[in-house]
Simulated scan of single mutants.
Amino acid sequence: MNKVLVEIFLPAANRSFDVYLPLESKMSEVLVLVSTLLSDLSDGKYKAMGNPVLCDTSSGIIFNINMAVAELGIQNGSKLMLI
C-alpha cells in the first residue's frame, strides 16, 4: 500500500479530519494538497495561504518539507496538526 491514513487536527476549525497521504510524496507537495483540502472542508474557517506547517500533534515536531512522508516515519494512525 502506498498511502497512510492519518488524522489531521485543524485548530482554526477546532476539528480533525482523516486524510490519506501518499508515502512517496515530499511533504512540500502534501502540504499544498492538504491545506487546500482542509480549506474546503472547514467551511471557510481555514484559508489555504502563506506557508502552512504540518507537525506531530503529540511532540510538536515540525516535519521537514524536503523529505518524503515515509522518510518522516508517518504511518497509519499518526496524529498531525496543520497550522
Rank of each mutant, 00 (worst) to 15 (best):
V19P: 01
A13R: 03
V69T: 13
G50T: 11
L33S: 14
K47P: 04
E71A: 10
I62C: 06
S58I: 09
S25T: 09
M49V: 11
E24V: 09
D43E: 13
T57D: 10
D56H: 12
V30Q: 00
L54K: 10
S25E: 10
E29D: 15
M81F: 01
Y20F: 11
K26A: 07
D43P: 03
V30M: 00
L5R: 11
M67K: 12
Y20V: 01
D18V: 11
P22E: 04
A70P: 11
I65P: 08
N66H: 07
G50F: 04
A48H: 06
L33P: 08
L41M: 10
D56F: 05
E29W: 09
S39G: 01
K79L: 02
N2M: 07
G73A: 00
L10N: 03
F17D: 02
K47L: 02
M67N: 06
T36S: 15
F9T: 04
K79A: 04
V53N: 07
L38D: 01
S28M: 11
A48G: 06
V19N: 03
L80R: 02
I74A: 03
K45H: 12
V69D: 03
V69R: 11
N14F: 04
G60A: 01
A48I: 00
I61H: 10
V6P: 06
I65H: 11
G77W: 00
Q75I: 05
T57Q: 14
M1N: 15
